[in-house]
């Protein structure tokens, strides 16, 4: 998709604000995460198949796509929900191991968390490369790099104590439904 002759220089485009909404099924505790573009996060209960989903929390965030300023290629990131840095909670977690190895080389690892139809998925390798290229190209500190990796490097999304970069607790600024 993006491995062509252009030495891409990616800039954010199509910035859009919204809410990362988390819901839980109160029968089986299944979690689903999605991005809402509404003015306030939806808090309605609803049934979907065997699940009864309840609002469990939300945070303000934004989505963006990346456009190459040279060749105008646009890579969309509708499924990308946010980035997180390892909190170092589990020595045997691959994200933790990789983060520690890279840190010594001034490479800072961020996991891209992505969701499709409420379920966590990994971004494609191409998209991870584009994000890595975008964030690294904006740096000024000599030798510093950003490496964006898939969220599945975490040992478990349920026990991981890393937190997504999002704006929790800013809801007083938005109208309640």
């Amino acid at each position: 998709m993006v491995r062509d002759k252009c030495r891409h220089l990616w800039n954010k485009t199509n910035l859009r604000d919204g809410f990362i909404v988390t819901e839980n099924c109160y029968h089986c505790n299944k979690t689903r995460v999605y991005f809402s573009y509404e003015d306030a996060p939806p808090k309605d209960e609803y049934k979907e198949g065997e699940h009864y989903f309840n609002y469990a929390g939300s945070a303000q965030s934004m989505k963006f796509d990346l456009e190459c300023e040279k060749c105008k290629t646009i890579v969309t990131f509708e499924e990308r929900m946010g980035l997180m840095q390892c909190a170092g909670c589990d020595e045997s977690c691959h994200l933790n191991i990789l983060s520690k190895i890279c840190e010594g080389q001034n490479i800072w690892v961020y996991a891209a968390l992505a969701y499709k139809a409420g379920e966590e998925i990994d971004l494609s390798v191409d998209k991870l490369d584009v994000l890595t290229s975008h964030f690294t190209s904006r740096l000024r500190t000599p030798g510093k790099k950003i490496l964006v990796v898939p969220g599945s490097l975490r040992k478990s999304p349920h026990t991981c104590r890393g937190e997504m970069l999002r704006d929790v607790g800013m809801l007083s600024l938005t109208p309640e439904t």
Binding site: Q85, Y110, F135, L139, L165
Partner: peptide
Amino acid sequence: VMAGAKAGNVWVTVQTHKNIVAAANLVD
């Protein structure tokens, strides 16, 4: 900050959560 801050900017905020550092580091 992730969308608008530039490398080299000083960031002024009331936030104190450790994720402010992760965001600052991401955009240098």
